[in-house]
Design a protein around this nucleic acid. Structure first.
Lengths: 211, 211
DNA sequence: CGGATAGTTGACTTGCGTCAATCCGCGTGG
DNA sequence: CCACGCGGATTGACGCAAGTCAACTATCCG
């Protein structure tokens, strides 16, 4: 099932009947405040499960949005319920996936609460890179990263203008460059240091629980 | 099982074998940064399940700390696994509880990302009051609330000094008073307005899933 | 060429942090 | 009964990180 860039998979307040597995493309989960400001909760990437919470707690508290063209498969809620019943391993897999989501959200919360703008950005990019599973800590690393500065601002709790200044700093200090949808890490260790990044096992998807 | 004020139920990095049901008292879940700063993730209150994530993702990514003397019962991880297997309802109950936790954390994340200090505080207190289940939106409301200004600061992502100033403002504007472990809401609607609080169904514990 | 979308930059303002006292309530022991 | 110490709360002066406002530029695309 293809969804094109700029469309929603799920709207806040909606009563969802299915969740999604993301196969290709980038999405984000976000909430909107009554003032119109947006806070991005997470950026699911291919392989992630989206909207589990939305089928457990209805109506849903967040929106899901396609940042690029996206390929997903929808999973009907009744299927999840069946999976819970079927085998302990499947139930455990669902639960683990939820726990992993939560861990990522908690990490994001800590970023927002207790770090400066540049630390937040550095920490975020390192985590992102780790999630993309290119783990080599040394040398030049290049990734596709179609996030706009506006998206980053809404995720990292700052203004567009300020994330721009932060990115400039990171670029000038030869730490990383984000341009034209491409993220280049010039100095992994340098960025990790600014972000005070602690390697975290729950970031990587747990393969053992997939069947 | 009694735990006295100031003790930990769980340490970050530890490999937990059980989770807890909180019966009496107040606790908090937090993470520590390498700089020594602390970010409080949540304040579980009686009736809440603590540390589900810690038995699913090991070693655990957060600490659990008793803010007051606390009464809990420990639940061995094997029991949870059995519960998953036993009945679809029990599996669903565990999953719902996890989802509710996550919803609360997401709400907290949005607070930190996109609200000013006074908005964060106001929003936090309204949510707290709702969780304590005294729902009446009008009149004078009084609760036990043993959180120190330091705890609040670490939860709301600001300094002790600033939360003090914010509390003073809320007091002077006759909105709420926090003193000597007692929270008094003078003007519920006024506070809710500052916090731009949207009532949220997932805040209240879901009784239907308890058995 | 014009119009939309995203990124950049500068000047100015402000919310919140930092540093440094001081205060208050309370328990303990001389 | 008073002195002392301790943890938490309070206040003031000052500085800075990040927000706001307002252009301006680059790129793409029809």
């Amino acid at each position: 099932m293809k969804i094109e860039r700029g469309r929603h998979l799920l709207h806040e307040g909606q009563t969802a009947t299915d969740m999604f597995v993301l196969h290709e493309g980038w999405a984000c989960a976000y909430k909107t405040l009554s003032t119109g400001r947006r806070q991005i909760i997470s950026f699911p990437i291919p392989g992630d499960l989206l909207g589990l919470r939305s089928i457990l707690l209805r109506p849903t508290d967040h929106s899901l949005f396609a940042l690029t063209d996206v390929v997903v498969s929808a999973v009907r809620d009744s299927l999840i319920l069946k999976a819970l019943h079927r085998s302990r391993n499947q139930a455990l897999a669902v639960l683990r996936s939820a726990a992993r989501d939560e861990a990522l959200i908690v990490e994001h919360l800590v970023r927002l609460g207790r770090r400066s703008a540049i630390e937040r950005a550095a920490h975020f990019f390192i985590e992102l890179v780790e999630r993309l599973r290119f783990v080599g800590p040394v040398g030049k690393l290049v990734f596709r990263c179609p996030l706009s500065q506006n998206d980053l601002a809404d995720a990292l709790g700052m203004t567009e203008i300020h994330i721009n200044r932060v990115l400039r700093q990171l670029r000038e200090r030869k730490l990383l460059t984000l341009r034209a949808g491409e993220l280049i890490i010039h100095d992994f260790n340098g960025v990790a240091k600014i972000g005070a990044y602690k390697p975290n096992s729950s970031v990587a998807r747990d393969l053992s629980s997939e069947d």
